[in-house]
Structure formats: C-alpha cells, structure tokens
Simulated scan of single mutants.
Amino acid sequence: MQRRLSRRRVLAIAAVAAGLPLPGAVEEAPDAPLITWTGQVLGAVGSISLRHPDPATAERIVARSVAELHRLEAMFSLYRPDSLLVELNRRGVLAAPPPEMRQILDAALHVASLTGGVFDPTVQPVWHLYCAHFTRREADPAGPPPAAVAEALDRVGHRYLRVGPDSILFARRGMAVTLNGIAQGYITDRVVDLLREEGIGHTLVDMGEARALGTQSAVRPWRAALADPVGPERPWKTLDLVDRALASSGDDGFVFDVTGRFTHLLDPRTGLSPRRYRAVSVLAPEATTADALSTAFALLPEDMIASTLVGLPTVEAHLLRHDGSEVALRGG
C-alpha cells in the first residue's frame, strides 16, 4: 500500500505585501515580533504563528496552545490505543463523553446533513476494508470483492450515530467512526479560540487546515499558496487569509494501491474513490467547517457543490480540475 504523508496540505503560508494597511488592522500589534512553533499534529506538521511584544508571554501562550492541541489529539486519534475515539470504536458506546467529543461529532453530523451524507464520519469500515485488502500479499489490484464492499457499506451511516449529553453510541453493530476529515479543522479552531482569549489578534494556526486572525502585519495579509499535486513546487492559486479559515483536499495524498485508483477520499455511498478533481480548497469562517466541506466537495460534481453552497453565504470552494483549469464557487 502506497502512503504519502503530505495529504490535505496547502503548499505554503506566507506574508504578501498589500501596499496599504488593511481595514481593521491593529496598528501596534502587527509590528511586534513574529513567534512560530512547529510540530507534529495528527500525523502532519502543524504550526502556530503569532505576534506579541513580550517574548516570554508569547512562549507561555504557545506552550498552553500546544498542550491544548495534544490534549485534543489524544481524544481524536485513531492510532493511539488509549484515545476516546478508539474506545468508542471498540465498544460501540462512550459514556459521559467530554464536551469536545460531542461538539466535533455534532459538527460532523451537521456537515453530513448539509451534503446529503457525502461527508460521513462513519465511513471507517470501508477504510478498514481497503487497508486490509491492499496490505495482503498479491492483493487483487481491482480492489476488494463487491460483496465485501457492500458488507462494509452496510455498517456505514451517520443516521445510526447517536450523540447525546450522556453518551455516544452506535445503533448498528460493526460501525466505526473516523475524524480524519474534520479533526484537524476542529483543533485549529480550538487553538484559535485559546489565542483569542489570551488577547492575540494577529495569528495564523495551521494544523493541516489553516485559520488566520487579523493580518500578518499592518500592510500584509496572511497568504496561502495552494499546491498542485502534479507539480507541488508550482502553486495553482494564492488566497488571502484575514479572519478566515482554509482547508484543502487532494486525491493524491493517500493512496491504497500503486496505480492510485483507490484513495483516502472514499465515497460513503459507493465505497469508491471518484477522483473528480486534482485539488479542492474551501474558505470558511471556521476551520472545522472548511475541513469537512473540502472532504465532501472532493467527492461531489460541481453542480452539487454549487447547490450545497446556496445556504452558505460565507463559504467559497476553489476547484482545480484534472485538465488544469480552475473554478471558484461562492455561497449565497
């Protein structure tokens, strides 16, 4: 099975001169020193960049932020045997869940409703099937047998995930949840909330999905350069981030087979990877929403993306087609 660790990443985050101060820019804070932390978060490289006039205070704030992201990662990881998510998948029920687990699953179910179930956190049984199939020696390159796919899909369905104040449970046997399409965005938002509480007005938090508060400086917004999977050294688009979040999905990030036919973007309705676009990026006010929608939009045709955006006036979708052309769809 082929693995690539650079999945779902914007190519770079950088400052860009804008010529004049941006509306709402705070005059004193953008000139303070820029402090940046980098480290591993949910299997990807994350970063926190902020401006603060006192380096000691900045270090304390960053340390608190890092402790928070690791606390949340310990809940949401699929690969830590002691995580709450692993416990839920193992037992089918989680008693007295912490508010963060309820919040992230409620957010996932909301996006599932928005997208007609195309974003579905219960797709994990299909992932398990493909992983087990392609890690076997001499695996059939055509993928798992159709009957096995159908059996896995029978254990998928966000309608059977029950989230309540006292418990989280599966209404069907054999279900399992993944938060891989939303956890990075949720953690990004929680770190941003913490920084805002600390009085930080100019920061960029990138946990695989990025969110900016304010600007990089009085004359520069934060700017994201979006990677083209065909040529990662050549961005296909740049987007300004001022009080907005950005999430990107690409179908080349994790592939199960050497031909790249089956990817981490699995349609919970069919169990297949449609590979509709080279890359998808979503701008939204919060990273949780941007993260989940970028996953769903990678599986949807353009007309259905446009229909979904009708009720989301603050959201934009930027699509890179396989022929190299691009389209921007905006909510309204």
Rank of each mutant, 00 (worst) to 15 (best):
V205S: 05
T38M: 14
T188K: 02
D252I: 11
P23C: 08
L50M: 13
V280D: 01
S167Y: 13
V41Q: 10
I182P: 00
D166P: 03
D154Q: 06
M75A: 13
G208R: 07
G271L: 01
F256I: 02
A284P: 02
L195Y: 08
S307F: 08
P268F: 02
H322C: 09
V255T: 13
H322S: 08
L312T: 01
I187H: 02
V310L: 12
P81G: 07
Q216Y: 12
A12C: 06
G143L: 04
T288V: 13
A148F: 05
E286T: 15
E27L: 13
G214N: 03
L161S: 01
G185S: 09
A17C: 13
F170T: 03
P232M: 07
R137W: 11
R211F: 10
T135G: 02
A14R: 13
L246Q: 07
S167I: 07
A150Y: 06
A183M: 06
G231I: 13
R71H: 07
E27D: 09
P55I: 10
M75R: 09
D82T: 15
F262A: 00
R155L: 02
A210E: 08
P146M: 08
D140Y: 13
A245D: 08
R51Y: 09
L312E: 02
Q2Y: 12
A108Q: 03
A298P: 04
P232K: 05
T57A: 15
G331E: 08
L312V: 02
I48S: 01
L319S: 01
A147D: 15
T178S: 15
L204T: 08
R269S: 08
R196V: 14
D257H: 04
I182G: 00
Y160Q: 09
A328T: 14
H70L: 07
A56S: 15
G174W: 11
S249I: 05
H202S: 11
D140I: 14
S83K: 08
G24K: 10
Y186E: 02
L283I: 11
V255Q: 08
F119A: 01
I48A: 02
G117Q: 00
V230W: 11
G174T: 11
D291K: 01
S273G: 06
V86T: 14
W236Q: 07
S281C: 10
L204S: 08
I35A: 14
S167C: 14
P313H: 05
S49V: 03
Q2D: 10
T36S: 14
V62C: 07
L169Q: 13
P274F: 06
A112N: 01
L109I: 09
L11E: 04
R4I: 11
